[in-house]
């Protein structure tokens, strides 16, 4: 079974958390502290949970997704997206009613290519926000494949940020 691993990257205020392996309650406190830190520092325009490489998420982590989405909403950042194509995970997400709170997409690559027309409006519509987030996700993935953007290990980030 693949070891749980969560990494993070950011593009213009859109934060992507990439889950891989079997992510269980042992990882949850670190992810939680990391996201709390993001919100405390402000400047969260969108949250994308990329579960494409996740084998499984346990109930503690599913709960964390919902709580973080709620926190994003309180901060007037109303874009929260889940990228997932694992059927098992999708069934669980649906059984918990997540599709009503999150934008759930199966593949970020299939998004319209020309998003350059989207101008920063003071109050972006839901669809505009969706496009922006998907574009950010796509850009980050492309960059990370070419090795120009390193997804940072969330746990390692926390360890380096802990005051001693």
């Amino acid at each position: 079974m693949a070891k749980a691993h969560v990494t993070h990257a950011e593009s213009d205020g859109v934060h992507v958390l990439r889950y891989s392996g079997k992510v269980d309650y042992m990882s949850a406190p670190a992810i939680r502290r990391f996201l709390d830190g993001l919100f405390d520092r402000g400047k969260v325009r969108g949250l994308i949970f990329d579960l494409s490489d996740a084998e499984a998420l346990d109930s503690t982590n599913l709960g964390l997704l919902a709580r973080m989405r709620e926190r994003a909403e309180r901060c007037h950042c109303n874009g929260s997206m889940i990228v997932s194509r694992n059927e098992d995970i999708n069934d669980v997400l649906r059984s918990m009613g997540f599709e009503q709170s999150f934008e759930i997409v199966s593949d970020a690559q299939g998004v319209a290519e020309n998003c350059s027309d989207c101008v920063d409006a003071p109050c972006p519509s839901t669809s505009e926000l969706r496009e922006t987030m998907l574009e950010a996700h796509k850009a980050l993935m492309r960059l990370s494949e070419s090795g120009r953007v390193q997804f940072a290990d969330v746990v390692a980030c926390l360890e380096s940020e802990q005051p001693h």
């Binding site: 709960g63 919902a66 989405r69 709620e70 649906r94 918990m96 009613g97 997540f98 009503q100 709170s101």
Partner: peptide, 13 residues
Amino acid sequence: NSGRPLNLPGSAG
């Protein structure tokens, strides 16, 4: 027919 778990934020019924 399922829905949101108890004590979990979200808009689903």
